[in-house]
Amino acid sequence: MNETFLRPEHGEADWYDARLPRPIRPHRGHPLRTLATVTLVVLLAAILGISSAYVIIEREEPLNAVTIGPWHAYPKAGTADADPYSVAIYTRGAVVPLASGEGLALVARKDSAGHLLDPTCVYRIAGQTPSARLWTLTAVDGHGKLVETLPGRVNLASDSLLRAPDGSFEIMAARRPHSGNWLPLAANAKASDGLRLVLRLYDAPVTTGAALDGVSMPAIERQGCP
């Protein structure tokens, strides 16, 4: 005689029988365990949700970027068509964007080889820009703030630039003075302060995103680091 023969006919008789398959075994409530699980899930979700939002907003890189080499532009940011992330970034920083009828700002955080820009290095910025009536190139730190430099100026403008006969130009970005077009970088910056290059094209036909396809932007090459 085996054991199954001894078991009663009705399932209710051995309701808590451990030999029942797991899914149909009755559930015994553990209120404390359930509460702990729900609390853990809510806490984990809150930490995950808030920190991921913080990281994305703090990076200050709106979505929908138009990328040309190392340069990024956000033509839609600061308009009514902006995505919620750029709205959050722009309102949190109280940034007044360059509107489409004024011009377009392009930001570089990395050089053409993909390395993060470092204010202690020397960079060569050379090539062409899209046609614009006027453009300025400004060096700011990793948070977009202006920095003290040796000569006091932090930018270069297109109307006072030395150019090759074909209209191309070569700019040296460095802390120490350079001959030719010199863009001064932060005088006493550490590598961790970060560096961004902002090229603002004023009255340019390329202020809409679609027109940015196929335009040439200057390349940023790292020449050397201390």
């Binding site: 899930v41 809510v42 984990l44 979700a45 809150a46 995950l48 949700g49 808030i50 991921s52 939002a53 913080y54 994305i56 907003i57 919620p84 992330y85 709205v87 959050a88 309102t91 949190r92 109280a94 940034v95 007044v96």
Partner: peptide, 24 residues
């Protein structure tokens, strides 16, 4: 956890513009 985290993430991002202390 992931679904709830996504909801919280979206709520945080959408609530930032309404809660900034100094707008432009």
């Amino acid at each position: 956890t992931l679904c709830l985290a996504a909801i919280i993430h979206i709520l945080v991002v959408l609530s930032i513009p309404r809660n900034v202390q100094h707008s432009a």
